[in-house]
Each structure stands twice: as C-alpha cells, then as structure tokens.
Amino acid sequence: MMTTLTALCTFAAVGILLLILAYISWRGVGSLSFRFLIDSPRPVGEGGGIGNAILGSLVLLALASALGLPIGIGVGVYLSEIGSGRLAAGVRFITDTLTGIPSIVTGVFVYAIVVLPMKHFSALSGGIALALVMIPIVARTTEEMLNLVPHSLREGALALGAPQWRVTLGVVLPAAASGIATGAMLAIARVSGETAPLLFTAFGSRFFSYYLDQPIASLTVLIYNYAISPYDEWHAQAWAATLVLVTLILGINIVVRILTRRRF
C-alpha cells in the first residue's frame, strides 16, 4: 500500500518528464530542417530559421566558459588546496550564496555594471551574466573533485621537493581532471538553458552577429519571444528550437552520467 503510493509519486514525476520530452519531439520535428538550422529569422509567413540564435548561444557559452571556468576552477582550487579557517569558510558561504541568487537578479546586476556604462546591450554582458551563474557551480564541483584526490598523492609530490603550485597543477588537478571536466560540462548545460539573465544583457537580435559589443541572439530568448507571440508559425518554430536546445542539454547530462557511472 505504502510502496504503491511512493511508487506512484515517483512515476508521476518520471511520467511528466517523458510527457514533456515526447511532446517536444512531436511538435519540434515538424518544423525541423537543415535550412531551419542555418537560416536567420524572417517575418511571419516567410519561414526563416534559428541559425543566428544557435550561433549566438554558442558565442555566449564560449564567453561564459572563458570567464567562468578559470574563475570557478580557481575558487575550487583555493577552497580545496589553499584556504583554511574562517576566510575559506566565508568564501565557501559566499559561493553557495551565489548559487542561490535568482538568475534574473544576476541579470539586473550585470545590467547595472556592464550594460549601463556601455550604454547598450551586448554579447559581452550576456556572457558575463552566464559566467556569474556558472562560477559557483564550477567552484563547488572542482572543490569536491579535488577533495577526492588522495592526500598521499600530494604528500608524495611534496616529499620530492615539489613546491605546492607544481603539485597542484602537475599532480592534483590532472588526477581530478575528468571529474572537473564533467562538472564543467554540467555547468555549461545548465547555463545554456538560462533565459532570465540574458533578457536585458544579450537582449536578442534578428540577425547573425558575432560582435561582442552588440546585442546577440540566443536560443532561449528566441524561444521565449516566439512562445509569447500570437503567431502559429512562430510557435512551431519555438518548438523546433526547443527540440534543438533540449537535445543538447539532455545529451550532455546523459553523456556525463554514462562517463561517471563508475564513480557515483
């Protein structure tokens, strides 16, 4: 009886997941074509595609990774290898705090410190906003992965007269590399679905753009704009864009899961 009830809860959740995925596939496949993937948006009735949004998302993710991964990994290294006592506890607390900050607030912050001084929306500000979402995730997974590296490995290297920085860079980080890489992949998957922090940073664009100081399109903002539009054609395109986005995100999650199955 009890087991039936809890099983029911579980399968309700799984059922909703499968329902959503099935619906996305069904609605998305219809509008999907090669042309759709490379074309830029056109006025209603003329078709068009999401090529610029895919490019924009990739630019934003590259920017976010370039900024967020080194900083996140650096904080993780600090927390695991260097910091101790109250200062480290404080940094850890602040990092966790950053995880909990709603991403829309991050967007407001980046608007205030980047968009206002530059006087216009830009890819750069979007990348910074996504990096801010990314940093705490990468920092904490890096810390966890470094903590899994046996202490004896560090001592072995230190005993050979290796300075700490060489031990960290040459022995500890390589030993944790695959774990940190999966953490980074998950962080990228996570921010590739973010919309709120991009609304008033990257803003969106109807054209192909790779200029960092200009507004840039992204898959998520495009999906949002099309979803709340009154046009059936755009709705259909939103579903197709969603199919592309969700395939990417779930793909990363599943690949990471398969790669890490032995460790978890």
Binding site: S152, A157, A159, L160, G161, A162, P163
Partner: peptide
C-alpha cells in the same frame, strides 16, 4: 624536502607512467 626524501607507508605512485613517476622529481 629535496634534501630529505621520504617514502610513505602506503605506496603513492602518481597516475602517470613508470618513467614519468621517477622523472617527476628531476623535472621539477
């Protein structure tokens, strides 16, 4: 620590090749 070397209770080779393990101290 370069002058006073140490061998530990539990062997702790680096996850590298045999050669690289021995070469590590020489390289750094």
């Amino acid at each position: 620590r370069r002058r006073v070397g140490m061998v530990f209770q539990k062997s702790n080779p680096f996850p590298k090749s045999i050669f690289e393990n021995v070469a590590y101290g020489l390289r750094i």
